[in-house]
Design a protein around this nucleic acid. Structure first.
Lengths: 352, 352
DNA sequence: ATCCTTGATGTTAGCGCTAACAATGTTGGC
DNA sequence: GCCAACATTGTTAGCGCTAACATCAAGGAT
């Protein structure tokens, strides 16, 4: 009241203009300004122009907070992500961001530092606080998905690579099929079996790739060696490859390695090189992800391509559908994006 | 009114609870609830407990929109980024996100698809709409920074790798020093000069690395060959390296290549390998970025490390400072994070 | 001429919250 | 025992916007 009064007396007092200021300048009611701003049809053309001019003159911007309060719509979606510095999550995030912008939504982002239920609850609270209308969780670990499923908010919630059985809608790449294709490719080249260096075993993607790898071997009647557990890092690929090299030296036949991602595959290539083994002459290597540099490694890396942009788009489409449906889902939605094998130089027939 | 009436008559009607609901259940005024929620000191302990219980029972969450409307603070910062799928921007974004969360701010993100002034204006409008209290622009191109500087909002605005002369505060890695260190390292090994494959010449980082490279050569009195212009992609590194190989075949002495980033360096290593040249025996290669796989390439890549997490933290600190200072800056702030050379296997003395 | 429809605008009442002030007790110094 | 100082709680008035209704003029159908 006091402040308002001061402003009345001294109109030169500069503060961000509000709708009433525009209305005064244009000589209309604030409601008419609202109509113009929102593109309401029943406003005389001349009035529209007058209001537009006033808006430009004052540099008016609609206060989205006030609008959100009354419309009860924040127009904001949330994203919960775990480790966006990795290739897949970063790509997916970019895809989601783009799709959200195209759909006219704002995006609010939280990154998880740890996968503890507490950390997840904190992140979820953060988004609830923001009153997001829905949320996408790039939730690659089982414990993370479970923690999210157990929480009451935010909803609706779509998971990316969230696995099955959580009761939450999910978008994912067909990891099982991708891994199967990779292993079939190697078996088709004549390898009697394929060893596997998996990613972080806590990740659902890692799990699914193990399933696909095992299934392909079983389908072909090939022996199934014990998979080695890595953590997605080049270092782990490097170290685990050395343990395979040792087993090879001990007489085991290791001619093909399917690696959980390209970063580890780079470590594997390095280890094999150091061990004096030729790729693909002595050992074939297949990765997963198809990072941009895969084609330019020495040798170029056979790998499995994942369309992360598509995953982003699909998850946003799914989320918007859930928002429209407003919780009345007849069944849990699930969208699967196919993976695609990219055959390059690191895979070939086994040595005689 | 009508709806309100219905709710009154039928309290079982479930809708998200508001402060008044909590107040009624706890037998206090809504203001007391507000005091409890905001940790105001002068509330009797027993009252606090009663209110807390009511909050838990109803699953109440404060409506941040209403709060923002009255406090005139959205508690939200914006990020404008260009191509977050690249290593540097993705890392920086993660650093900013973390720092923002620790400072109690929400983060709203926009990604730019193109660097046209129109695209930038649209992105800026998007954040103004959101009423962000400040903004960080991961703005690696001159045109982008200029477009941002020309706009009236959002403010305050801190740029990352935004160069000088825009009039905007900036946080950056010391690209010039990093490049200089890399070139000094190569000259110190005995190379008579160092060739340069630069990144996308529209990027300021690329420009700064060229400056550092040139300065180091000039300081040493070494000849300065024409730099080759790439686009950060492995493909461009691969193709440009071939043109250097040709010049070598034509008699030019090319024994050391400083490459604008690690991705291109991977392409370079590949091209040299295909040309039958040994690294570092025939040609030394140094990259920039220190991506996680650099250490595990064959040979392991000498490169320049950038502490992106630090850049993220610094830019947020700078932004918060600007917000506090509320536009009364005496001079344009600038924070420089040092780069660090990582010497590995891809650099060595020149052939005799 | 009368009524209803339609278009263009204004008026009013909140959305859920916090700031400011008012109204109580409650304590302690003298 | 009285009053100042303080702690605790309640009351009121908006923040800037949109939805709903009210108003008024200008036709067209009857």
């Amino acid at each position: 009241m006091l402040f308002g009064g001061v402003v009345q007396v001294n109109p030169a007092e500069s503060r961000t203009p509000v709708m009433a200021d525009v209305a005064r300048l244009a000589g209309v009611s604030h409601q008419t300004v609202s109509r113009v701003v929102n593109g309401h049809p029943n406003v005389r053309e001349e009035t529209v122009l007058r209001v537009r001019r006033a808006i430009d003159e004052l540099g008016y911007h609609r206060n989205s907070t006030a609008r959100a309060l009354v419309t009860r719509r924040t127009n904001t979606l949330g994203v919960i992500a775990f480790d966006t510095t990795l290739f897949g999550p970063a790509q997916t995030l970019a895809g989601i961001e783009r799709a959200a912008r195209e759909a006219g939504y704002f995006l609010s982002m939280v990154s998880l530092d740890d996968v503890s239920p507490d950390g997840v609850a904190t992140a979820a609270d953060y988004l609830i606080q923001q009153s997001v209308e829905g949320c996408v969780a790039i939730a690659p670990q089982r414990s993370l998905v479970e923690a999210l499923a157990a929480l009451s908010g935010p909803r609706p919630l779509v998971t990316v690579e969230g696995g099955e059985g959580s009761g939450l809608p999910v978008v994912c790449v067909d990891q099982v099929q991708g891994a199967r294709d990779a292993v079939h490719h190697l078996l088709g080249l004549g390898h009697t079996t394929v060893h596997h260096i998996e990613g972080d075993p806590l990740w659902l993607e890692s799990e699914a790739r193990v399933v696909g790898w095992r299934r392909a071997l079983e389908e072909a009647g090939a022996p199934v060696p014990e998979p080695l557990q890595g953590d997605w890092s080049p270092r782990s690929g490097y170290e685990l490859a050395f343990s395979l090299v040792e087993r090879r030296a001990a007489g085991e036949r290791v001619t093909a390695i399917f690696v959980g991602n390209d970063q580890m595959a780079i470590g594997v290539l390095r280890a094999l090189h150091e061990a004096g083994l030729n790729v693909p002459g002595d050992v074939s290597v297949v990765g997963f992800d198809d990072v941009p540099e895969a084609e330019y490694l020495t040798p170029s890396l056979t790998t499995v391509y994942q369309d992360f942009a598509q995953v982003g788009r699909e998850s946003l489409a799914l989320l918007l559908g859930e928002i429209d449906r407003n919780g009345s889902a007849d069944r849990i939605a699930r969208r699967v994006v196919p993976a695609r094998l990219r055959v390059r130089g690191s895979s070939g027939p086994p040595p005689p």
